[in-house]
């Protein structure tokens, strides 16, 4: 009898405040497990965002810092430059990274800051009650697009991974999803690879994780996993957009 799965030491014992079925919990676990497996937990400094994951500093079992809305990459830049030997990551949602914090993430990548970013994209503003985000899909109903998002009014949803992959300073860019056990395993591999890019001093790395929001999508957790697969993955294709050797 061998234990093959147990709570990672990368997370604290605190129970999360996330809604039932919210995939933030899965992604927190993957980040915690990645830090433990790479042996960097004692050396890691995370930067928490504003949004549903604002309390991430309570959950990750490493040093954490809170940032103003969207400014996690700027805060992480300062931390990394003062403590170049520490592993520094940001954990941000789509309202944080793809909207109010677009300038910060683009320029952190552009400068080639040696930080890692976990970007959780659930196509909606969760914490504030389900408003339309830049990543909300065409036709998707939210509290601020009750008839569904239209191209004419709001443009097309922004694809951050594709955008960041055009920037020379971004050395690792990959999009993953956490809707099935298989995809969750792949997501963890991508997170570990992104973290290694920083540990090897190669530069900026980001993993975009397609995530769900059962509460604000108005679905059960199993329905939202299916909605992610049927609607998000066709528009936000999974896969790697950039690796260090390709970025040279």
């Amino acid at each position: 009898m061998a234990v093959i799965f147990e709570r990672t030491k990368g997370l604290t014992e605190v129970e999360t405040h996330y809604c039932p079925g919210c995939t933030h919990g899965i992604i927190h676990r993957l980040v915690g497990e990645a830090m433990v497996e790479l042996g960097i937990l004692d050396n890691a400094i995370g930067v928490a965002p504003v949004g549903c994951s604002v309390f991430a500093y309570e959950y990750f079992n490493c040093d954490m810092h809170e940032a103003a809305h969207g400014r996690a990459p700027a805060v992480a830049t300062g931390i990394k430059r003062v403590h170049p030997d520490n592993f520094v990551f940001t954990y941000q949602g789509d309202g944080d990274l793809a909207s109010i914090g677009t300038a910060e993430i683009v320029h952190a990548a552009h400068r080639g800051e040696k930080i890692s970013t976990i970007f959780v994209n659930n196509a909606i503003y969760g914490m504030t009650g389900g408003q339309m985000a830049p990543t909300t899909l065409i036709g998707q109903k939210t509290t601020t697009s009750p008839q569904g998002r239209t191209v004419e009014h709001s443009g097309m949803p922004i694809r951050m991974s594709e955008l960041l992959a055009t920037i020379d300073g971004a050395k690792f860019v990959e999009r993953v999803a956490v809707n099935t056990p298989g995809n969750i395993r792949k997501a963890k591999r991508a997170i570990i690879e992104a973290f290694k890019v920083q540990l090897e001093g190669k530069g900026f790395g980001i993993v975009e994780v397609l995530s769900t929001c059962p509460t604000n999508w108005g679905m059960t957790a199993p329905e939202s996993m299916k909605w992610l697969a049927d609607n998000m993955i066709p528009y936000y294709p999974l896969g790697n957009f950039r690796r260090p050797e390709e970025a040279e």
């Binding site: 009898m1 061998a2 234990v3 093959i4 799965f5 147990e6 709570r7 990672t8 997370l11 129970e15 999360t16 996330y18 079925g21 919210c22 995939t23 933030h24 919990g25 899965i26 676990r29 099935t180 056990p181 969750i184 395993r185």
Partner: peptide, 20 residues
């Protein structure tokens, strides 16, 4: 069968899996 799929997808780390 100890596949750990349930633990993999649980957002709240409720599940511990043993295999033998």
């Amino acid at each position: 069968i100890g596949c750990a799929n349930c633990a993999m997808v649980c957002p709240d780390l409720v599940i511990t899996v043993e295999r033998f």
